[in-house]
Each structure stands twice: as C-alpha cells, then as structure tokens.
Amino acid sequence: MNYSRWTPFLFLAPALAGLAVFRFAPIVVAGAGSFSGMTLTGALEFAGLENYRWLLTDPAFWDSLRITLIFNLIINPLQLALAFLLAMLIFQPGRGIWVYRTLLVLPMAVSTGLSAVLFKLVLDPNLGPLNGILEWAGIGAQPFYRAAEQAMGTLIGIATWKGAGYWMLFLLAGLHAIPASVQEAAMIDGATPWQRFRLVTLPLMRRPMAFVLVADTAINFLFFAPVYILTGGGPNGATSVLMFEAYRSAFTFSDIGRALAISSFLLAILAVIIVLEFRLMRSPEDRR
C-alpha cells in the first residue's frame, strides 16, 4: 500500500511516547535511582550498591520479603482453585446461571480501595455486622485485621472476594475452548464424569490455568491498597508486604533510594513473570 515512511510513526508517536515516558522510563529511573542516595527533597548523590547492601542486611526487608512470599504462596493457588471451581459451576448452561455469573464478577468493578473500605466497615470489631453474626452464632467476635495472626488471612480473604470472579472469566473462556465433541468422544469411550474431568478437562485447561496463576502472581506481588487502608503494614509488621515497605521507605522515612531498590527488586521478579507469560502466549497446542 502507499504511504510515506513516516506515516506509521505519526500514528504511533503519541502512544509510544506515553509508554516510553510513563511505563519504560520509570524502570530505568528505578534502576538508576536504586544506585543513588536521594531524599524526598530531591538531593541526589551516587551511592553505588549502598542501597542494596543496606537492604540485604536489613531484617525488615527480609521480613517483608518473607511476608510477601507467604502471601503469594497462599493467595495465588487459592484464587486459582476458587476461580476454577466457580468456572466449573458456571460453565454448563442452566436456568438463572447468568444471575450467579453477574453476581460473582461484580466485585471486579468495585475498586480495590473501595473494597478495602467496605471490608473495614464489615469487619469493624465493635460495630461490624460480621462480628455481630459471629457473636450470634456463638463463635464469638474476631479481631480480623487488628490481630497479627488474623491480619494476613483477612487481607487474603478480601483480595479473593474481589479477584476470584475476575479470574473465573479467563478459565471460563478456557472451558469454552474445549471442543464439545472431545468431551463427547470421552463419554463414548466410557469415561465417568470424574474421569472426564481428570483426564480430559484438567489437562486441556493447563494453559489457561497457568496464565491465571502467572498473571495473578504478577498482581499480588504488588499488593498495596488493602494494606494501606486496613492494616498500615501491621499489626506488628505482620502484613508489611514489599510494596508497602517501599511506600513507607519513600514517604515515612524519606529514603527514596531504598524505595527504588525495592521497586527494582520487584521489577526484576516481574520481568521473570512476564517472560513466563510470553512463553505461555506463544504457540498454543501446535507446539506439540
């Protein structure tokens, strides 16, 4: 077709400039900044590996890393399993199923911040209805996000409330992508429903499940808003995930260098995750 060599770039320029400045440049800034000492007033000096040395000898960082890992090791498989259960329940057509489906995905439109606020009210130790119900049921009121032992579980619960339906959508699409005739062939081959699930559905869902696991992990490594709103990293540092630790470094301790070092660390983890994701997206079944 006829167009000048520059036409494509005229169309691309605004978007590419935006992505370059607001998506890719910050990565460079994080990397460069992590080698500098910088305070919130903006004074900047080269500090070499100082920030990393500090970080690696800082027990608070290791605690935070441990908390982030534990959080991810629990929440990602949990959300995947729940999302898969939901997808299986919703998949077959049925009377009124669309109502359930809509209800289950509704929280994805409630912003993360608002859902944290919502649960702060629901779980309020003195006035929240959930504790009222627990009292009524004879279980007794629980401290939830106010106790070190329960805070992490509470945050996981809130994030799952918001996320399970969202991830279900991807698994649902995966289920729809399995040809009906393959399931029918399995029935004719004599498979019981359980055998069909285990030997046909599950192996054919590996790709969508891997996608959900990887994409969910990417998001949960950066978990922030509910920590900020509900626990402030506490009680006793029990929920001080890395992203919150980075935020605190910058805004509580005015230690931008440390904040950027943590950001760089998270970006490196994300880079690995994104490579995994690209692997998954490239050539589906036909690789075999």
Binding site: P179, S181, V182, A185, A186, L204
Partner: peptide
C-alpha cells in the same frame, strides 16, 4: 453412552489434543 458399547467417529475427529496417537487409541 458408557453403557451402550458403541464407538463413534466424529466429523471433526474429536481427538484428545493432549494425548499421543497411541494414548488416544488406548484411552477407552
């Protein structure tokens, strides 16, 4: 279908994409 002892060849073949030819044939 399980109780009928029939075999069916589908128009689009409906092979199990995750199984080898041998495993496809031996599945039942």
């Amino acid at each position: 279908p399980k109780g009928r002892d029939v075999a069916m060849v589908f128009q689009n073949y409906a092979l199990y994409p995750h199984l080898t030819v041998g495993a496809n044939m031996g599945f039942s």
